[in-house]
Design a protein around this nucleic acid. Structure first.
Lengths: 216, 216
DNA sequence: TAGATTGTTAATCGATTAACAATC
DNA sequence: TAGATTGTTAATCGATTAACAATC
């Protein structure tokens, strides 16, 4: 079995499928499935078995001819590849509804992610609790980021405050930003930005609905 | 100018970029920019001008040699292509934090989308208000969907209730489902499903952070 | 062992980019 | 008009799929 700890050069298309592999393997594991073939797994996911095997081959050899893959083993490997086992930490910037919703998102624990703080600059919100955290004022953010060695900043502010928040996050050493604000952030390219543009997703749905109704 | 009302056969890669074109054009329009060339616009978006022109050419001819594109015209066209001008309606299933957050998402109005109702089956939530709506019980959902001719159901329930909600939505005529629950829905394929898997997006961010730190 | 299934190579398919004639 | 920029064709690049020898 080759090591999967070296950084291989992997295309964006493959990277986008890794979380899906994780999701399906996690579910199989929870259902006490011991082994699975590329044929079965790919069929569940709606892709070809060639693609599944090709994707995995970027990281190593994890299966066995004539047998398939051990679910627990492959889940562990995909988790390592994704960095789940690094136990990243984060803070949430913005204590509105989305901020609070994200704070309690159950998928985080499963993925080894821990939100350590939530910040806002609305005096009415500061000092309130959300989950088990006090909402802190923005001017305490820099110190908090450094002392707690926060990896990821989650931006759920209105669009106009997002860039300011991003700048503070980057200046104080976060490695990545998960951005829910509907705006393009300007960020030094040693920091990774992942955008969650709700509007874009909704418009894609619109387009497909329209396309479908036109083809009838 | 060719018509863009015929349903052309357009690849998923192109469809995914359409909302981005909308976003940038909307911003230019708000900043009172009158015209833009494919070179300038593509540069802003971080793609090639070839790709931009190639993408638009699937739908018609909207530019002018030696001039470029009129921003207002192109914005209108992209809006029509995406179906924004259809003024779709929706309901939210699940009145937790995410449900309430989505209800007040400012991007909806801009995109011609109107949330007409919000439903939950928690007796404590039913009857409360969210935005200007009373939270309704799930057993009123079928009638509501039919009477109001709802186009889109937004699922923000826990994973275990999502499939039940989806079934009710489909039985009562929605054309699309926007799913925030971390589960794969089984849906008749005349209904479009768009999944917002927060967990997948976060894991993609993890991967890129890990990859970046390994390449140093 | 025989059957099953992997990992990989080669072939195919599709998407992106380059280049340029057409033309405003 | 001359310069700029489109829409489109052709070339390139990359991703997906098919096929199969290797082997458990």
């Amino acid at each position: 079995m080759k090591s999967y700890f070296k950084a291989p050069k992997v295309s964006g298309a493959v990277i986008k499928r890794l979380p899906m592999y994780y999701r399906f393997l996690f579910s199989l594991y929870n259902n006490h499935v011991e082994r699975i073939s590329s044929r079965e797994l790919s069929h569940m996911m709606g892709i070809t078995s060639s693609q599944l095997r090709q994707d995995l081959s970027h990281f190593g050899e994890f299966g066995q001819q004539g047998y398939g893959y051990r679910v627990d083993e492959l889940l562990k490997i995909i988790s390592d590849i994704l960095g789940i086992t690094n136990h990243y930490t984060g803070v949430i910037i913005g204590a509105g509804n989305i901020g609070r919703a994200i704070l309690t998102y159950p998928g985080f624990i499963q993925r080894g992610f821990m939100v350590m703080g939530i910040f806002d600059n609305d005096p009415k919100k500061i000092g309130q609790t959300a989950r088990d955290l006090y909402i802190k004022p923005m001017d305490e953010l820099p110190q908090f980021l450094q002392e707690e060695h926060i990896d990821i900043g989650i931006i759920v502010t209105p669009a106009k405050s997002a860039q300011i928040a991003a700048d503070v996050l980057v200046e104080n050493g976060v490695k990545g930003i998960w951005n829910f604000a509907p705006t393009d952030l300007k960020i030094a390219d040693n920091v990774i930005v992942e955008n969650m543009y709700l509007g874009d997703s909704l418009l894609e749905l619109f387009y497909k609905i329209k396309e479908r109704s036109e083809s009838e």
